[in-house]
């Protein structure tokens, strides 16, 4: 069995396993499982509602930025810099979109693989980049929003540093392995 197959099986079994273990363990420890479940689940609605203002603020700003075509301008400004390390200009929109928008970067990844082929260097690069970081700004908005935190201190800078490190490493490792 390959690594991928093993991981696939684990990820399918994980959730049923966790639910099963929690219920049986709770029952064995004489927890009133049904009542506790409902007690905990009650909060679900409140958490979801609490993040709405934060999500609206963040997604609208990202939406304006995407619709305006500012991304193309940014690509034009940054491409001389990224050319210095041999980073392909075609993959630059992906690097810029990834921290901002999940659906946006998925679209860019699909588009690049359609034009250049999924097994081309560019295709391998953008799909590695897609998996190497998360949509930082969305995660920050949702997670801090859920507990009403407005002053995020160094979270944005640390998050962006992590994105840059992930994207650059993705580029160098792809060059090493596929280049």
């Amino acid at each position: 069995m390959s690594f991928k197959e093993i991981m696939n099986i684990i990820s399918i079994v994980a959730i049923p396993f966790v639910i099963f273990t929690f219920l049986i363990y709770g029952f064995a420890k004489k927890v009133k499982v049904y009542e506790s479940f409902v007690e905990g689940a009650k909060e679900g609605f409140n958490v979801a509602v609490r993040i709405i203002p934060y999500l609206v603020a963040m997604l609208v700003a990202i939406g304006i930025f995407r619709a305006s075509g500012a991304m193309d301008v940014l690509v034009a400004i940054l491409s001389p810099l990224t050319n210095l390390i041999g980073f392909p200009a075609e993959a630059l929109p992906m690097a810029l979109m990834r921290p901002l928008s999940g659906s946006g970067s998925l679209g860019i990844m699909t588009e690049i693989m359609k034009t250049h082929g999924p097994d081309s260097f560019l295709g391998l690069l953008v799909s590695t980049m897609y998996g190497s970081t998360e949509t930082t700004f969305y995660v920050l908005a949702v997670y801090f929003g859920s507990v009403n935190i407005r002053k995020t201190r160094h979270a944005v800078i640390a998050g962006v540093i992590s994105d840059i490190a992930g994207l650059l490493t993705a580029f160098f490792i792809c060059k090493l392995v596929f280049g």
Partner: peptide, 26 residues
């Protein structure tokens, strides 16, 4: 979209908070 994402979270949110409550008490 922002509101739809938040509303879409309610179900899984409730499920996992319920499961976590059991795990906490146990």
């Amino acid at each position: 979209i922002a509101v739809k994402i938040a509303i879409g979270l309610i179900g899984v949110m409730a499920l996992w908070l319920g499961i976590m409550k059991i795990g906490e008490l146990a």
